[in-house]
Amino acid sequence: MKPRDRDDEGRARSARPRDGLGRPLPYGVPGVERQPEGVVRSPRESVAEAQRLLDAGMPFHAHEVFEDAWKSGPEEAAPLWRGLAQLAVGLTHAARGNAVGGARLLRRGAGALAAVDGSAYGIDVPGLVRWAGELARRVDGGAVVDAAAEAPRLAPGGP
């Protein structure tokens, strides 16, 4: 049996390269550089980095930025970052062709975000809730999703 890939701390972590949607590629094939885990950023840095990744069609990687923000930030902000991570994963699944999972996660993330205020971080929560609901409806209807073309704007009037 082949030994499992491990990270520097000895945790199981696949060393296989991944594409922009986080899908594993065969060993030796060039992939997209992975987001480092556990990076502590300011909320505005997290939003800017996640937006860059979303715009590049890499929502799986943006989800990792949101995950770091919720794990390293204040507990009261965790629901915001978790909801954003769910939206990013929903977009990931929709772009991978998993309509059921994509629509479900988009709705779950929108539901979580509907209960929070992101204005302190410059996040357009109402706009994201609308975006997620509309995309979920389109995905349910069979829409083919291009992650970069569907990238949401995290901040009002954002890039």
Rank of each mutant, 00 (worst) to 15 (best):
T92W: 00
T92G: 02
T92C: 02
H93E: 13
A94F: 06
A94Y: 14
A95F: 14
A95N: 13
R96C: 07
R96P: 02
G97F: 02
G97R: 02
N98V: 00
N98M: 01
N98F: 00
A99D: 11
A99S: 14
A99H: 12
A99F: 07
A99N: 04
G101N: 05
G101H: 07
G102I: 05
A103L: 09
R104K: 08
L106Y: 03
L106N: 06
R107L: 12
R108M: 04
R108H: 06
G109T: 07
G109P: 07
G109M: 06
A110P: 05
A110S: 11
A110I: 04
G111I: 03
G111W: 02
A112M: 14
A112Y: 02
L113V: 07
A114W: 11
A115Y: 11
A115V: 14
A115R: 15
A115D: 14
V116Q: 14
V116E: 14
D117S: 05
D117Q: 11
G118T: 09
S119A: 15
S119H: 08
S119M: 09
A120I: 09
A120F: 12
A120H: 11
Y121F: 15
Y121H: 15
Y121I: 02
Y121Q: 15
Y121V: 14
D124C: 06
V125K: 10
V125M: 12
V125N: 11
P126M: 03
L128P: 05
V129C: 06
V129H: 09
V129K: 02
V129W: 03
R130M: 01
R130D: 00
R130A: 04
R130C: 00
W131D: 04
W131R: 03
A132L: 08
E134D: 15
L135E: 09
L135P: 10
A136L: 10
R138W: 01
R138Y: 04
